[in-house]
Design a protein around this nucleic acid. Structure first.
Length: 535
RNA sequence: CGGGGAGUAGCGCAGUUUGGCUAGCGCGCCUGCUUUGGGAGCAGGAGGUCGCGGGUUCGAAUCCCGCUUCCCCGACCA
């Protein structure tokens, strides 16, 4: 007989906003101790263990070996790989100062994994090797939110592969991705693997495993025709060839001769939203040009204007960094809020890059900033009224844009990132000491690495988010805390009921996870739903 | 870090504007009796530094000052 620590709530805690958090809190799966810090109650722990079992099964099948790395990692290790700097002085990690030495509470384990494998796998005969662990990670999130979806302390399954060559790394990568596919299939989650930004992990090829959800923090695009899919952070849209640009340029230059730029007074309107509503054109933001001011950190910090149509946002290229206040102070002719590629101060050295969409000039030209406080300019035609140094695909893809491969319209899907896999190549093996193996030709070579992460605690929220109805949670069979719930009735009237219930429990629990409910023996069936784990 | 909202019993809330009886209500919890096919009824009961500190006042959940925690939007996001 069980005495499960459960206290279901009719009302969700006031601080629970998203459905998964409400359901998991109301049904006693998780308990929030502090912002972004969650505790798993007995029911939640059972789900976690089931999830882990699914993950282990498929990773083991893929030849990965489970181990357990330390939470504490010496800061020296991060200095060695160069990532203390990447992470802005380790700010996003929790720092711990011991009696001797400084540590981070592991936000991720590439360095440790590299150190371990490079100690034990020194010969090409030892490779490939893939290690993994399921462990709590610590990330000092600027803003934890959405319940278990973004937390400071999270449970993750992270795997690291080590190969002798790029080709072998690619093969291993595929093996692990196949395992991931099986894991998500078992969990009854509909995931889409998309191309994504590698961020501070590093490497070129990487995939995010996205689960469609209206509360997702990410958006990816997908092409139903050719299958192209990518996170909007890096997604491409149709680009134009040089010849096409030439043709369009000539067309623009010959078609807009009657237009001439005209200054308009737009007090207080320093954003596209403001100015478009002031001009009564808030549903026609594509007729505006938005200019982002950045600096080229590889090239003497010269200003770069990224120009997109007003309905779009930009993807910031790696070599550019946004202007801060000091930068604006240094360039007084660049007026924040009214910046424009038109009528630039002649003394200013600036590079102007336009998105391809800027070639789609509206009938009356664009409305742009005037490079003068409180003013904009209308009837401005690119190429005619201002010069452009280059056209590039710098705008974030919008719904309906053309696919870069097949030009079909792209869909955008809001989503939650459930997992992320990376081919990181030589990043750690070349930056860290002795991260080499002896190859069959007698030469020491760096490992080709891959890294793979599944957000285990986040998955619980993702599953809850996608597997429920208006009455409560409906777990996939593979992770349900119990398979069978026995509720004996009329216990106090008939002793044989109890005997029978126990007998049934003993029999069924040979093969299933059974909950024999002793907490409500004197109650009618009606009240049992009070303690249903599905709530 | 910028903007907005909130903190009163385990959970959800009222009371605060206009200071004044012993700080209330629903759910949950405990005891007893009754009830037994869809979140039981009746009776009795336990449980509160009104987020924290200071101030004003005869008197503060309520007014003033400071702090703190939590949530949301944004920035950020390995």
């Amino acid at each position: 007989m069980t005495q499960l620590l459960i206290r279901t709530l009719r009302d969700a805690p006031q601080d629970a906003e998203v459905e998964s958090h409400k359901l998991l809190a109301r049904a006693s799966y998780v308990f929030r101790l502090s912002s972004g810090v969650y505790n798993f109650l007995p029911l939640g722990q059972r789900v976690l263990e089931k999830l882990n079992a699914v993950i282990r099964e498929h990773l083991n099948e893929a030849g990965a070996q489970e181990l357990l790395m330390s939470v504490l990692q010496p800061v020296d290790l991060w200095d060695e790989s160069g990532r203390s700097a990447d992470f802005g002085g380790l700010l996003p990690a929790f720092l711990v100062k011991g009696r001797s030495g400084k540590y981070v509470m592991g936000p991720t384990h590439e360095e440790v994994a590299t150190r371990i494998v490079s100690t034990y796998a020194k010969s090409y005969k030892d490779l490939p090797v893939t290690i993994y662990q399921i462990q709590t990670k610590f990330r000092d999130e600027a803003r934890p939110r959405f319940g278990l979806l973004r937390t400071k302390e999270l449970i993750m399954c992270d795997a690291y592969s080590f190969d002798v060559s790029k080709e072998k790394m690619t093969e291993t990568y595929q093996v692990l991705r196949d395992a991931y596919d099986k894991i998500f299939e078992t969990l009854e989650l509909d995931v889409t693997a998309v191309e994504a930004k590698s961020g501070a992990i590093g490497g070129d090829v990487n995939h995010e495993y996205m689960v469609s959800s209206p509360i997702g923090e990410d958006t990816f695009v997908s092409c139903s025709n050719c299958g192209y899919s990518a996170n909007t952070e890096i997604a491409k849209k149709k680009s134009y060839l040089k010849e096409e640009i030439t043709v369009l340029t000539e067309k623009i230059l010959s078609s807009y001769n009657s237009l001439s730029p005209q200054e308009i007074y737009t007090p207080g309107s320093g954003s596209i939203d403001d100015v478009s509503s002031q001009l009564d054109l808030s549903d026609k933001k594509e007729q505006f040009l938005k200019t982002y001011v950045l600096k080229d950190i590889d090239n003497d910090n010269i200003p770069v204007f990224l120009v997109v149509t007003g309905d779009r946002q930009i993807k910031i290229p790696d070599n550019l960094s946004p202007f801060d206040k000091a930068d604006f102070d240094e360039h007084p002719s660049i007026i924040n809020g009214f910046v424009s590629p038109y009528n630039i101060d002649s003394a200013l050295k600036v590079r102007i890059i336009c998105d391809y969409e800027v070639l789609n000039v509206p009938e009356n030209g664009f409305v742009v900033g005037a490079n003068k406080a409180e003013y904009h300019v209308k009837n401005v035609v690119p190429l005619k009224d201002f010069a452009i140094d280059a056209f590039e695909d710098i705008a974030v893809v919008n719904e309906g844009d053309s696919c870069p491969n097949c030009e079909s319209p792209l869909n955008t899907v809001r989503s939650v990132e459930a997992a992320h896999t990376f081919q990181i190549g030589l990043k750690y093996s070349t930056s860290m000491a002795n991260a080499e193996f002896l190859d069959e030709d007698g030469i020491n070579k760096p490992y080709y690495m891959g890294c793979y992460g599944i957000g285990v605690s986040r998955l619980i929220a993702v599953i809850a988010e996608t597997h429920h109805d208006d009455k409560g949670l409906i777990w996939p069979k593979s992770v349900s805390p119990f398979d069978i719930h026995i509720v004996p009735l009329f216990l106090n009237k008939d002793e044989s009921v109890k005997l029978k219930a126990v007998e049934l429990y003993n029999e069924l629990s040979q093969k299933y996870d059974v909950l024999l409910d002793s907490l409500m023996l004197q109650y009618a069936l009606g009240i049992t739903s009070r303690k249903q784990f599905a709530l």
